[in-house]
């Protein structure tokens, strides 16, 4: 039983050690600015289309689903409120992070994994560069900067999607929708909606880099590392969102 647990416990410890080193490197020279900007472009700008699409349709679907339920209570004009609260608190952060996990945790794991199996990581160390400082820290910071921004964009596009559905098919006027959407939001909702992607960003980048740097067994190993990174990062997002929501819900009510 203990042997069975040893692997996962060791992995958790290794991820935390990697995170500690990556954060420690933020304050050490040299800082690889150009690598960070390249990663911000790949993660941030590169993920924009997919994040906008998922945000838009999740908002639109939410408006369609909720309007039916709300109509039962004669509160169809509150659709804006439901859409904005679900998106800002939960769906925006979770869906955006899942999209970025699928795109970038896999990208990081496969890129670093390929470098590992072709001895590029060893070469980097042998040639005087710390792979964590050069590869992990820029990816971690780039994800931490861009994921909250992507979430804000997804939230807005999602509410806009809900608005289009509301005015075109539900017979709700624009001012009705936007007023209820706006008034429903509290500062704690915004905080929750930003704390979540910020936290998820570390799960995505560190899990992606961890599996990449620990790849063994050639190209097959790279494939395995990529799959594991996406699965673990995605599951972790759901686990973390539960605990963060619990903290915020417990605080407000």
């Amino acid at each position: 039983m203990l042997d069975f647990l040893k692997g996962p416990v060791q992995a958790v410890q290794d991820v935390f050690t990697l995170g500690g080193k990556a954060i420690g490197n933020v304050f050490r020279r040299p800082f690889y600015w150009s690598d960070m900007f390249v990663q911000m472009d790949i993660i941030g700008v590169g993920s924009l289309p997919i994040v906008i699409l998922t945000g838009f349709f999740s908002g639109a679907v939410m408006a369609l689903q909720m309007s039916n339920a709300l109509a039962t209570y004669g509160a169809k004009e509150q659709t804006g409120m439901v859409v904005s609260i679900t998106l800002v608190r939960e769906l925006g952060p979770a869906l955006t992070s899942l999209m970025v996990a699928g795109r970038n945790a896999s990208g990081m794991a496969s890129e670093l994994g390929s470098m590992k199996v072709t001895e590029q990581i060893d070469a980097m160390r042998a040639l005087g560069t710390d792979p964590i400082q050069k590869l992990v820290t820029p990816r971690m910071l780039a994800t931490a900067f861009t994921l909250p921004l992507l979430t804000v964009i997804a939230d807005f596009v999602g509410i806009f999607g809900g608005y289009l559905v509301a005015i075109s098919t539900l017979g709700i006027t624009g001012p009705q929708f936007w007023t209820s959407a706006w008034q429903a939001l509290d500062y704690s909702d915004i905080a929750q909606g930003l704390v979540k992607p910020f936290t998820f960003s570390f799960a995505i980048s560190l899990i992606g880099c961890y599996y990449g740097l620990n790849t063994t067994g050639g190209t097959q190993g790279v494939g395995r590392a990529t799959t594991q990174a996406v699965v673990v990062a995605s599951v972790l997002i759901f686990v973390l969102t539960f605990f963060i929501t619990k903290i915020f819900v417990g605080r407000v009510y």
Partner: peptide, 30 residues
């Protein structure tokens, strides 16, 4: 390691860098 040179089994070249950048890498990172 700055005083040691190494050729890895598969060459260990950085595939996203040009040949000149690869060779210049140990000097750039000194």
């Amino acid at each position: 390691r700055r005083k040691l040179g190494v050729l890895f089994q598969e060459g260990g070249l950085f595939d996203s860098l040009t040949i000149e950048e690869n060779v210049a890498y140990p000097l750039e990172n000194n």
